Amino acid sequence: MSTLYLAAGINHFVQPKFYLRIIPPIFKNKERINQLSGAAEIILAIGLITPLQSYAAWGIILLLITVFPANIYHLQQKGAGMKVPIWVLWLRLPLQLVLIWWAYLYT
């Protein structure tokens, strides 16, 4: 789990355009939101392999809930110009629940 969130967090800085496209327009300063969410994923990923594991897992749960609107927006925008099959975007929504459950196992 730590590796997954570490890679995702780093990817926010390596490929920011992907994340910027799926942040709903209601949110201002998309660049800052992308940087903060990427940094949060990196910090929480590291936290998962420390004695603070339980706190990091709760942080991941909160993060997953917080970024859920981006997943819905990505679906509403039919991939936001990216070549992502619609079924993948639909599958991503319940996958959030699986990821939340997985994180909960670390609390």
Rank of each mutant, 00 (worst) to 15 (best):
S2G: 15
S2C: 12
S2Q: 14
Y5A: 09
L6S: 11
A7S: 14
A8H: 07
A8W: 10
A8D: 05
G9K: 05
I10C: 13
F13C: 03
P16M: 10
F18P: 07
Y19G: 02
Y19L: 01
L20A: 07
R21W: 03
R21S: 09
I22Y: 07
P25H: 08
P25A: 03
F27Y: 15
F27G: 07
N29E: 12
K30R: 15
E31V: 12
R32P: 05
Q35V: 11
Q35E: 14
S37V: 09
S37A: 11
G38R: 11
A39L: 15
A39S: 15
I43Q: 11
A45L: 07
I46L: 15
I46S: 12
I46P: 08
I46A: 15
L48E: 00
T50H: 10
Q53E: 15
Q53C: 14
A57G: 09
A57Q: 11
A57L: 13
W58Y: 13
I60W: 04
I61N: 02
L62V: 01
L63Q: 06
L63G: 00
L64S: 04
T66E: 12
V67P: 02
V67K: 02
F68P: 02
F68S: 12
F68I: 02
P69R: 03
A70F: 04
A70M: 06
N71T: 13
I72P: 09
Y73N: 04
H74M: 04
H74G: 09
L75W: 06
G79M: 01
G81P: 01
K83C: 09
P85Y: 06
P85F: 01
P85L: 11
I86A: 06
I86R: 14
L89A: 03
L89R: 02
W90T: 08
L91I: 10
P94Y: 00
P94F: 01
Q96K: 08
L99R: 05
L99W: 03
W101Q: 08
Y104V: 00
L105W: 00
L105R: 15
Y106V: 00
Y106D: 13
T107Y: 04
